[in-house]
């Protein structure tokens, strides 16, 4: 695909997507829209989605595995984006939340395709399982009456659509140009794995130069083993790189290289827990010195 064609395609796709989304969004003043408008909006949005998917590089056809995974990629991408549009445009917040769950599931599928199985499962559990349920819970709690004016009215839909689709168009244009312009070091996965992401690991031996005892050395070897690579050390006879077992590798990376990060994240969760309990406490705050 030439650059001009890409440019035209991106512009057209984004434009029709923008028109479709605008039509699908609630009316600015909360008026009811005609059904034809919705249909037209759905058509335009589908057209935009199609154009957008055409922007993506198609998978190779020869090994069946790649073809299948490429097809699944299209399915999941289309699902994620379609559900995303519906999330944004649904008038009922309950539907929004449910569509968002769909987005999350589709994204989890994309994670799977990117060899991040643990994350896929985690996303589904945390987002679709926990967060969406929390949202739904709050919606039920807050909107027991059901209909609300503000759900049926969008705020400045035209300007919002213009803004976000201008952003999307710019991003897409950059990214489509990316594949031709940038190549990482051609040495393959080994060099990629040796990315100098962990200078701290290389500093270790300098600090422990004086460590002479055999026990210390064993401990150091265990502790300072490279964990950052996605790929297994022992590649066997296969030509292609073999990935490490996902959960084991991720766990090793998390708890060897990013231990502090994990601890920090845990502390953050704990703090958020306390904050949520404190903020949402319905009892009136007692002033100091006031008796119960």
């Amino acid at each position: 695909m030439t650059d001009d064609a890409t440019f035209t395609l991106a512009t057209l796709g984004v434009l029709s997507g923008a028109i479709g989304t605008y039509l699908l969004l609630p009316h600015r003043r909360g008026r009811a829209k005609a059904r034809t408008l919705y249909v037209a909006g759905g058509l335009f949005a589908a057209l935009g989605l199609l154009g957008f998917l055409l922007l993506l590089t198609p998978p190779a056809l020869s090994p069946l595995g790649e073809l299948v995974s490429g097809a699944f990629f299209y399915v999941f991408a289309a699902g994620a984006l379609g559900c995303g549009v519906m999330t944004v445009t649904s008038r009922n917040p309950v539907y929004s939340a449910l569509w968002f769950a769909g987005t999350v599931i589709a994204t989890a599928g994309l994670f799977l395709l990117a060899d991040a199985q643990f994350l896929a499962a985690g996303t589904v559990i945390v987002y679709a399982g926990a967060i969406v349920v929390t949202f739904l819970f709050v919606i039920m709690l807050a909107q027991m009456e059901g209909k609300a004016v503000y759900d049926r009215a969008a705020r400045t839909p035209g300007r919002a659509v213009f803004t976000s689709f201008l952003l999307l168009w710019s991003l897409a244009y950059c990214l489509v140009g990316l594949s031709g312009s940038y190549r990482p070091d051609a040495a393959g996965p080994e060099a990629a794995a040796e990315d100098r992401l962990h200078p701290g690991r290389e500093l270790g031996p300098h600090f422990f130069q004086e460590a002479t005892g055999a026990g210390v050395r064993v401990v150091l070897d265990k502790a300072l083993r490279p964990t950052s690579s996605l790929f297994a050390e022992d590649r066997g006879d296969s030509d292609a790189a073999i990935l490490k077992p996902n959960v084991a590798g991720l766990g090793e990376a998390l708890y060897a290289d990013h231990l502090v990060t994990v601890e920090l994240a845990g502390s953050l969760l704990f703090a958020a827990l306390i904050a949520a309990v404190l903020i949402a406490d319905p009892r009136p705050t007692r002033k100091r010195g006031e008796t119960a």
Binding site: A77, F165, L167, L168, A172, L175
Partner: peptide, 10 residues
């Protein structure tokens, strides 16, 4: 990245 950007924009 394209899909991510689209999700972000939406």
């Amino acid at each position: 990245l394209l899909v991510g950007a689209a999700l972000f924009a939406l």
